[in-house]
Design a protein around this nucleic acid. Structure first.
Length: 857
RNA sequence: GCCGAUGUGGCGAAAUGGCAGACGCAACGGACUUAAAAUCCGUUCUCGCGAAAAGCGAGGUAUGGGUUCGAAUCCCAUCAUCGGCACCA
């Protein structure tokens, strides 16, 4: 006797069998236009997953959630007659591999290769219908050659404000092209993480710590490569409009871009007399969204790092200011914001002149004003700004009300819109009009202008790490210069020691021979950040083996084409990329679009976010909690079809939900019931196609449930409600389970519906039907998706609910053709209803045809 | 603090203005079996009146109000959980 646990159905034979068949016959390979077997009459559908970073831990059950959803859509769309592009690849550059390599001494190229193989094996075991011929990997020189090439396009362009788009740098007429390139070098205060030995983008810093590893991050000025994403702020904001993304994600991007409209106002510094204009009077330019509160400005604040500080501070205040600045410089961002709720600052000794009333107001230096936003200086309006109020109260500065709130609210501390008071130029005007009028006044008097500001910062693009794409740049006489396209790819030198230096000098600098590009030129030793490779991978998938171009023109036009602004028809991934990857990719895409390399202004038309899968204990899965579920274990026990179906049956895709092995078992039981609906076990213990399946017409009830299932599953795939689609298929199977004879036609239909969800089982049973009935239909992957017939769904009779005052009191069968009057009469005549209404006056009677009658008494 | 999402049985959920809890899990009972597993059939929101069952009645979708003949669903307020942003002028 075998001690092996008996499998509910032989998925362990079926699943490897079909995976081998798919590998051999390549039914999911999508040829490009012009290639063999390409069918130009079919419309295209590009369905994309966010490709994974292949970590050493392998897949966990969260990864395949979105992948299963897209696989269902891909298989469904193929059966609906689309050419489906459904690729997969590896985002393999980046910090974790390198951190691991430093720890273990194994080269990241080796661990990366191993991890990719592991991930691929795991994904193939789930039976996803990827076109593996299009597999890409961002660390492959054949791939990053083009990442570097795109960087060169960015480097060699500028954003022309007149045309509102990127143009080749050759069209720039100014003196210094380096000042306007979309990729530029700047000495900026950056997020330096000593532990990781690199700088990080704002987006990679969370609460003053590195997103990866949670190490402290400090501010430090360094020479860095930047990408001018701010030039695209307006378009990145406006063009969200045309995308089918969840509103929440659009909002996250809008907030991240953070557009605010207001005015820039110039405050001359007092005491710089300029008889005969021998010297320019220094002015402090501030940005405010509330120019209407200009009369309420009782002081100014400069950020500690503001360049005017040196110029205006008085002799006697200098020691205090210097001391304050040094202290502020040492603070991390965390200390400057989160921890420091108490306002600090120091008086500069200087005064500014308010342009609207010529008042002298003191200039302070305080770190609650950030150099990085607006002009790095503000006018303090304590009456109508919480922060300014707090500051003014602490340092005893005057507070002047200039906005009258509606109602009887206290004006001090009121930050909303009201009516301007104590403001001669705009007195009596509502805030919105006051803003316009004072801005106009400022423009007329040369003291300011309307202005728009963004929270979005330019993208810090260089990293002091080894495991990334080298920048295709050399330095000559202290100036940067692009390498020619013919020199790509720039391959990093083989390095024994790729640890961060700790000084901020990149590890590549250790490769002295490599760095020496020529007698006069040295190579740039910074590398690109991890986001670079994922900024354009969806384009490479269209034409992954092209060695002439980053993507062939025709392939790009076909797969990224269509009527909508975005090229990829469906993109599924986690919310965690809402402002990182999704913003960077849109930015690169727009640059490529402006330069004429791609055909649509946006990369991703429809975006769907899958929710996080929690552990069985309802906690986030993590190594430390020990609640990680590995797909391999689930598949060993229940098979991949059960795994796939359970992932979808758990609940709505977008929702966060806990894993449950019991739940997997339930779904496995369903698939076993499907198996036994078709198969029966012989005396010898062999499975054979059931004799109950015959070439007979389904009865009325069978016809109805079949067509109801076609309808529901189709609609549910379209609307991503996979859980309810599976429920409906369960209902169908339950309905057929004890039938005497099982009509072949209904079973064929059902298998086609089941196929996207449980493709191995559906393929196997389909093959068994083919073997017995020999009707020459081919594989299930070649079948057309069925359409439902509404006629089978309508009943002659419906159950009508009778309510009295909204409470259900009885039901009755009625013909669907019953008139409203007939329904009303029948309801009132109903004996059980009589009980409720005798002796009462019947008021209104609401009749909903085919559904209910509500009697109001 | 601001913005957003969510809140329904013992559990995952369904129903988005018309019978709350489809479907699945779990639990309980039955059939089959020497027995178990597996399978199949049935029961299961809460409370009250029934010896019990049938039956009858009342209540119930985070909390409190409102709109409506009718609300899980729409509106207002509150609470809780999760996510994002956070001195952004």
């Amino acid at each position: 006797m075998s001690s092996e646990r008996r499998k509910p159905y032989p998925f362990d034979q079926i699943e490897p069998k079909w995976q081998a068949i798919w590998e051999e016959r390549q039914p999911f390979h999508a040829p490009n236009p012009g290639e063999q077997n390409f069918d130009p009459s079919k419309p295209k559908f590009y369905v994309l997953d966010m490709f994974p970073y292949p970590s050493g831990a392998g897949l966990h059950v969260g990864h395949p959630e979105g992948y299963t959803a897209t696989d269902i859509v891909a298989r469904y769309k193929r059966m609906r007659g689309f050419n489906v592009l459904h690729p997969m690849g590896w985002d393999a550059f980046g910090l974790p591999a390198e951190q691991y390599a430093i720890k273990t001494g194994e080269h990241p190229a080796i661990t990366t290769r191993e991890n990719m193989a592991k991930f691929k094996r795991q994904l193939q075991r789930i039976g996803f219908s990827y076109d593996w011929q299009r597999e890409i990997n961002t660390t492959d020189p054949g791939y990053y050659k083009w990442t570097q090439w795109i960087f060169l396009q960015i480097y060699n362009s500028w954003f022309n404000p007149a045309t509102n788009r990127a143009e080749p740098i050759s069209t720039y007429r100014g003196e210094n092209p380096d000042a306007v390139r979309l990729a530029y070098v700047a000495d900026v205060p950056v997020n330096w993480c000593p532990e990781l030995g690199t700088v990080l983008a704002n987006e990679e810093v969370v609460d003053g710590k590195s997103e990866l590893g949670g190490f402290p991050v400090v501010r430090r000025p360094m020479r860095q490569w930047m990408l001018r994403i701010m030039a695209y702020a307006e378009r990145l904001l406006n063009e969200l409009e045309g995308l089918d993304w969840p509103e929440g994600i659009k909002l996250l991007q809008r907030n991240w871009i953070g557009r605010s409209e207001g005015a820039e106002i110039d405050f001359p510094v007092a005491g710089f007399a300029d008889p005969g204009k021998q010297r320019r009077v220094p002015t402090i330019r501030v940005f405010t969204t509330r120019p209407d509160t200009l009369y309420g400005a009782t002081y100014m604040v400069l950020a500690p790092e503001h360049s005017l500080v040196d110029l205006i501070v008085t002799e006697e205040q200098w020691p205090a200011v210097r001391e304050y600045r040094e202290r502020a410089a040492r603070k991390s961002d965390l200390e400057r914001t989160d921890l420091a709720k108490e306002k600090t600052g120091v008086f500069s000794g200087a005064y500014a002149i308010n342009p609207v009333n010529s008042e002298r107001i003191p200039i302070w230096v305080a770190d609650y004003v950030l150099l990085g936003y607006g002009t790095g200086a503000i006018m303090g309006v304590p009456a109508h700004d919480e922060r300014d109020l707090e500051f003014a109260q602490k340092f005893d500065l005057p507070i002047r009300e200039v906005v009258q709130p509606p109602g009887d609210e206290n004006a001090i501390g009121f930050v909303g819109e009201g009516v301007a008071i104590n403001s001669p130029v705009i007195d009596g005007l509502p805030s919105s009009e006051a803003k316009k009028k004072i801005t106009k006044w400022l423009e007329q008097h040369g003291a300011g202008k309307g202005a728009i500001n963004y929270k979005l910062r330019d993208w810090l693009f260089s990293r002091q790490r080894y495991w990334g794409e080298p920048l295709p740049i050399v330095w000559k006489d202290g100036k940067h210069e692009a390498l020619g396209e013919n020199e790509l790819p720039i391959v990093p030198p083989p390095l024994e020691d790729y640890k961060p230096t700790g000084t901020g000098e990149p590890p590549l600098a250790k490769a002295k021979d490599w760095v020496r590009y020529s007698d006069k030129a040295l190579r740039e030793t910074n590398t690109m950040p991890q986001w670079a490779g994922s900024c354009w991978y969806y384009l490479r998938f269209c034409d992954p083996h092209n060695d002439k171009r980053f993507v062939g023109e025709e392939a790009e036009r076909y797969w990224m084409g269509g009527r909508a602004p975005g090229g990829v028809d469906l993109y599924v991934g986690g919310t965690e990329h809402a402002v990182l990857h999704l913003l960077y990719a849109r930015f690169w895409h727009k640059v490529l679009f402006d330069l004429g390399y791609v055909s649509k202004p946006e990369p991703f038309q429809r975006l769907v976010n899958q929710g996080i899968i929690l552990g069985e204990d309802n906690q986030k899965m993590s190594k430390s909690r020990g609640n990680i579920v590995n797909p391999d274990d689930v598949i060993d026990q229940y098979g991949t079809d059960a795994f796939r179906c359970y992932e979808m049956f758990m609940g709505p895709l977008e929702q966060m939900k806990p894993w449950s092995m019991r739940g997997v078992e339930g779904v496995a039981r369903f698939l076993a019931r499907v198996w036994r609906l078709f198969m029966s076990e012989s005396q010898e213990g062999n499975w054979e196609l059931s004799d109950k399946i015959k070439h007979v017409d389904p009865d009325r009830a069978q016809q109805k449930v079949t067509h109801a299932t076609i309808k529901k599953v189709t609609e549910d795939i379209e609307s991503f409600s996979f859980n309810t689609g599976i429920s409906q298929m369960m209902i169908l199977v339950n309905a057929f389970t004890n039938a005497e004879t099982i009509p072949l036609s209904a079973m064929r239909t059902f298998l086609v519906l089941l196929n996207p969800f449980a493709p191995h089982l559906a393929s196997e049973l389909w093959e068994k039907l083919n073997a017995r009935f020999r009707d020459d239909l081919g594989d299930i992957t070649e079948q057309k998706w069925p359409a439902h017939d509404e006629r089978f769904l309508v009943e002659d009779e419906v159950e009508v609910v009778i309510q009295v005052n909204g409470k259900v009191r009885d039901r009755m069968k009625m013909s669907i053709s019953a008139t409203q009057e007939e329904m009303k009469t029948a309801a009132l005549a109903n004996p059980r209803i009589q009980k409720f209404i005798t002796g009462k006056t019947v008021g209104n009677v609401v009749v909903v045809p085919k559904k209910l009658v509500n009697i109001v008494i």
